[in-house]
Each structure stands twice: as structure tokens, then as C-alpha cells.
Computed example of a mutant assay.
Amino acid sequence: MTGFHNHKTSQEISSFDEDASFSICYGLWAECANNPVRLFAILSMQRSGSGWFETLLNNHTNVSSNGEIFSVKERRSNASSIIWTLDRVYNLDLLTSASKNECSAAVGFKWMLNQGLMQYHKEIADYFNDRGVSVLFLFRRNLLRRMVSVLANSYDRYAKLLNGTHKSHVHSHEEAEALSKYKPEINATSLVKDLKTMENMVLEAIEYFSSTRHMILYYEDLIMNRTKLMDVQRFLGLPEMDLSSRQVKIHRGSLSKHIKNWDDIDKTLRGTVYESFLSTDYSN
């Protein structure tokens, strides 16, 4: 693939720069034109560890993972806008804070399932296959923990527990402890149904993109077995490095201390296929 394609008019460049908050790159990648680049996308769900995982990838000298490109609704309004945005990313036409000055060996971003990915899955899968985009699925095994994280993060958007500032990710144990003091109350009546819905969405996404070159990862496995990161680097054709992240896990230890109506939740999940979610724990 070529390193830089400048096919846009000045008006188009100005529009994209304003809407996407990106700086258009006018030649930084030219020196890397003959450098093979692996294109990738991290397909995940909110509060599944994708932010932490992306910081690990960006800790690699030769990786540029550019965040949630499709968090902006205009970029996912229809299939055409999605393809247009994908071209901007994969043609290396733009810079974000994750862009490296070195010749990148892998370039991509993270994409949440509810950001147009499922709605336009056929067009996106075809694009991935045509461009040779490798897919990294990243999910959580313990969906109850994900639910706690989603509810707590949603609460903090309004409560702003850290000195009036909302933070989805933190870099100190003090900040993590402050955020973890909020205990969400989970709807026990719809809990099993809600967990099943999340589970089905994961399975559906994997099926939709089964034709792509892909790798399925789980947050818990990455936490417990850091050799999984070496597998990821080999999958992306990268020189292997020890990767690290400054992010600190917010909800540590037993879930019983993070859910307000724990007794109800414990009673609801006992004897179900989700009973293991009550006791599964890991450290970070």
C-alpha cells in the first residue's frame, strides 16, 4: 500500500479537520511508503478493557491506534460515511495523538459494537476483507463486572466524583478508590435477560466478522496471562516488546463490595449459567 494519498480538495480537508478534530498529514508518511503496514481494528464494547488494551498497543514503538474514531455520530451516519472515514484512517491521511513519527508497522483504532458496526456489518466486513484489515475482538468474560463498570461510569458522567471532573480511566490508586466508592444498584428482575442480551451481541459480532482475519481476546485472559500480548504482537506482525500501561483498574476485588443490592444479585444468579460471575476475580 502507499503511504499517503492526497485526493481531497482544500474544502474537504478543512471540513474533515473541523469535524473530526484531526490534523491532516501532508507527507509525514511519504518516507514510509514502502514500509509494509498491518491495518487493524479493535472491535469491542464499552467498559470491556479496550481503552487499557489500546494504551498497551500504543506503548509499542511501531503501533498507532487512534481511539474511538466512530464515537462521532456523523462518521457512522450511513455506510458511505463509514467507508469514507475508514479510508482516511487506513490511507494514513491523518494524524491523531496516537500517530508515531516512526514508520508504523500497524495502524488502526477501536470500534464499539454500538457505533454503526452491527448495523452496517456486511459493508464493513467486505471493506475489511478487501483492504486486508485484521480484526482484534476484545470482550469481557464476566459480563456482570462489565455491567458494574458501565453503570458506575454513567453515574460519574454527571456526579464527576474526581474534583468535578469525569474520568473514564484513571492513573492512580487514589483516583480508582474514589470512583469505586459509588455502588450501583442493578435491576435484579431483568438481570439474566440483560446478561443474555450482551452475550448474544458478542456472539453475533463474531459471526458477522468471521470471514475476516481475526483474533478473539478476553480482558481477563490478558490480565492473567501477559504472554497473550505477545500473541497479539505476532498476529499483527510486530517486533515483540514488553508493553505497559499507566491505567489503574477501578473495581478491584470481590463484586460484593461494588454492588449496592448484592444480596438480590447473588440470589438471582445462583443456579443459573451466570453463577460463576459472582465469584470470578482477578488482579490487575
Rank of each mutant, 00 (worst) to 15 (best):
P239F: 08
T165G: 00
G3K: 12
K73Y: 13
S104F: 04
F53H: 09
H5T: 15
L56A: 06
L56M: 10
L269T: 05
E220K: 15
T55M: 06
E31H: 02
W262L: 03
S80K: 13
N142M: 12
D264N: 09
N59Q: 13
E174F: 05
S180D: 14
L39F: 10
S97H: 02
L162W: 06
L203V: 07
D242N: 05
T212F: 05
Y120P: 04
E175Q: 05
L229W: 08
G3D: 03
T268N: 01
E199R: 05
M45A: 09
T212V: 07
W29D: 15
K193Q: 11
E220I: 12
F4T: 13
L179F: 03
N59Y: 02
F209K: 01
Q233E: 14
T61D: 05
E207I: 04
V273E: 08
M118S: 15
T9F: 12
N78K: 08
R141Y: 11
D242S: 12
T197N: 07
S65M: 03
N35Q: 13
E54H: 01
N261C: 02
S48N: 10
R234W: 06
I82H: 01
P239S: 09
S244L: 09
H173E: 14
C32P: 07
R47N: 04
R234C: 10
S244A: 05
L92M: 13
T197Q: 07
L217Y: 08
S104G: 13
M118N: 10
Y218D: 10
G132S: 03
M215R: 12
E207D: 08
F235M: 04
S244Q: 04
K260P: 03
M118D: 09
T197C: 14
S244W: 06
H60Q: 06
V273I: 14
Y155Q: 10
H169K: 04
S21C: 08
Y208F: 10
D19P: 11
G49V: 09
Q247I: 11
S14V: 11
E102R: 03
S81E: 14
E199Y: 08
R157A: 05
Y155G: 04
F4I: 05
H173R: 10
S256G: 09
T9V: 13
A105Y: 13
N225Y: 13
S254D: 09
H60N: 13
C32R: 12
K160D: 15
S71T: 14
E275P: 00
F137M: 01
L238G: 15
D266E: 15
W52V: 01
N78T: 12
F109S: 00
G253F: 09
L95S: 06
R131N: 07
R234M: 14
S77Q: 12
S149D: 10
I13D: 11
S244R: 06
V202G: 05
S210V: 02
R47V: 05
D266T: 13
M118Q: 08
T189K: 12
L255S: 02
E174W: 02
Q115Y: 02
S279Q: 04
N6Q: 09
Q233C: 06
F137P: 00
N129T: 09
G132A: 03
F139N: 05
S279T: 11
G271M: 07
R145N: 06
N114H: 08
I250Q: 00
L243K: 00
N129M: 06
H214D: 12
